[in-house]
């Protein structure tokens, strides 16, 4: 039982990070039909931007700030203007392929300009334990989970309780009508790219102390978040959150109770089951498209 509690807490902590990254997937899909296969690398890159800032002499908190700002500039504004906008007019598939190329480009650039070796990354959450139900639970897991939940709550509040959030939702649901009623659709789409860039930078701060800063660390993360977004529902933020948490927990339980070797297969089996039984995902809504 105590083992199960440890596994659930660790799974939820990792799952919360998957959820943050998966939310980015759904945001970009809803507003601009962008499937970003470089999302994992988007999580990997900010850690190196922060490490570079620290190497230049910045304290950790300032490095985080610089990393987030640079991330929003490069992975938000730059990504939209230089890759998404020119490619989207050619269709969803060419854009998806372009993001695959971008993923390779980012990985190789980090390998060349930084190192192929892993680098340590400081933790924003202190180490140590706290007692839950009389059991010591790692403070780092709780901290990561709490920060991730805070980020998701802030995002849902922004989307559901503010004028900008309503405009973003309107732009996502029907851009033509949104434009007619005066919503600055282009600006709203840009906001979603900036929010995605902020989220991946936050995920980077949370996951890199555990995974270490390495050019290839985005591969696993990108795949897990993509599966989470599909399992939860690619067109619903709450679906991506649920999918992320579920994948995190399932992955940990599979490693403990099924087999470490087959742990990577279990989320994929879950994905296949969802596609067969509920193609729109657990919380997604069916979409109809004219061919």
């Amino acid at each position: 039982m105590s083992n199960l509690l440890d596994l659930l807490v660790a799974g939820l902590a990792t799952g919360a990070i998957y959820a943050i990254v998966a939310v980015g997937f759904t945001l970009l899909w809803q507003t601009s039909q962008t499937i970003n296969f470089a999302q994992g690398e988007f999580v990997m890159l900010p850690a190196f931007l922060m490490l570079a800032a620290m190497q230049a002499g910045a304290p950790f908190w300032l490095a985080i700030l610089i990393g987030i700002l640079l991330s929003m500039l490069l992975l938000g504004l730059g990504f939209k203007m230089l890759l998404v906008d020119p490619m989207l007019r050619h269709g969803v598939l060419p854009l998806a392929i372009a993001t695959m190329a971008l993923a390779i480009g980012i990985k190789e650039a980090v390998k060349q300009f930084w190192s192929a070796e892993a680098s340590p990354f400081p933790s924003i959450v202190p180490t140590g334990d706290i007692s839950i139900l009389g059991r010591p639970v790692a403070l780092q897991s709780i901290g990561v989970l709490a920060l991730a939940i805070l980020a998701v709550l802030a995002l849902t509040t922004l989307l559901n309780r503010t004028s900008i959030g309503h405009q973003m939702q309107a732009a996502a649901q029907n851009p033509t009508v949104a434009k007619i009623i005066g919503v600055p659709v282009e600006r709203m789409i840009l906001f979603t790219f900036l929010i995605n860039a902020f989220l991946v930078a936050l995920a980077s701060v949370l996951i890199t102390p555990i995974y270490l800063a390495k050019f290839s660390s985005g591969e696993v993360l990108g795949q897990a978040a993509f599966i989470a977004a599909i399992v939860g529902g690619f067109n619903q933020v709450r679906g991506a959150i649920a999918g992320g948490l579920l994948i995190g927990v399932v992955d940990n339980l599979a490693a403990a109770y099924v087999s470490t070797q087959y742990r990577a297969a279990v989320p994929l089996i879950l994905l296949i089951a969802v596609i067969l039984l509920r193609p729109q995902g657990m919380f997604g809504r069916p979409e109809e498209r004219t061919v």
Binding site: N3, D6, L7, T14, A255, A256, T260
Partner: peptide, 20 residues
């Protein structure tokens, strides 16, 4: 007797097994 994978990033489950 715990087998892990090369390049594995997350060891939470493996360590839980050790703990148990």
């Amino acid at each position: 007797d715990i087998s892990t994978e090369a390049g594995q990033a997350d060891f939470a489950a493996d360590v839980s097994k050790i703990k148990a």
